[in-house]
């Protein structure tokens, strides 16, 4: 974990130079499902990340997770509470979980927010109709970075 913080610092420095998002198909995950580098090449904005996490139209993370610091109504209980999650995981691990949790937890119910292929009967959003052309990931590279920045604020102390 200490190592990844270091890597991150390096990445962020590099991010200034290469501010291009990594395409969903090009993301490289570590053996345990973490993603070392920023997906957008830029740092995340925790305040925006909080709204991505609570909004139904974006991450809707609170559909399944309780987050005490968010004042979103009707927080779900399908997943664990995210309180203190930054004490349990490093930034790269959290990025990997949000982008594709199935690389960290095999078979998890948690959707993959930065993935665009490999689905059974993908639809055109919530219309029930077949998807037309290439899918967009559920969240953009920058939205993922924003959510990760928000998750990094969830510490016990």
């Amino acid at each position: 974990m200490r190592l990844s913080t270091l890597t991150l610092a390096m990445t962020l420095a590099a991010g200034v130079a290469y501010a291009n998002p990594v395409a969903p198909g090009d993301v490289s995950y570590t053996e345990y499902g973490a993603i070392e580098a920023s997906l957008s090449g830029a740092p995340g904005d925790a305040v925006n990340g909080a709204s991505v996490a609570s909004s139904r139209a974006m991450g809707n993370c609170v559909a399944c997770h309780k987050v005490s610091s968010l004042d979103a109504a009707f927080q779900g209980e399908v997943g664990p509470s995210l309180d203190g999650v930054a004490d349990r995981w490093s930034e790269s691990e959290l990025r990997g979980i949000v982008a594709n949790a199935k690389k960290t937890y095999e078979g998890t119910i948690m959707p993959s927010f930065y993935k665009i292929s490999g689905f059974v009967r993908p639809g055109d959003a919530f219309t029930g109709k077949a998807a037309q052309g290439e899918l967009d990931p559920l969240l953009s590279a920058q939205q993922i970075e924003d959510v990760v920045a928000f998750l990094m604020t969830l510490k016990a102390q």
Partner: peptide, 25 residues
């Protein structure tokens, strides 16, 4: 048991593994 769609959810994910839990409201 097939995980359909971009959210990759099967009937069983919600109604077998998670009945009793709240998913949002």
């Amino acid at each position: 048991y097939t995980r359909y769609g971009q959210l990759e959810l099967s009937c069983s994910n919600c109604h077998e593994d998670n009945y009793g839990n709240y998913i949002r409201a």
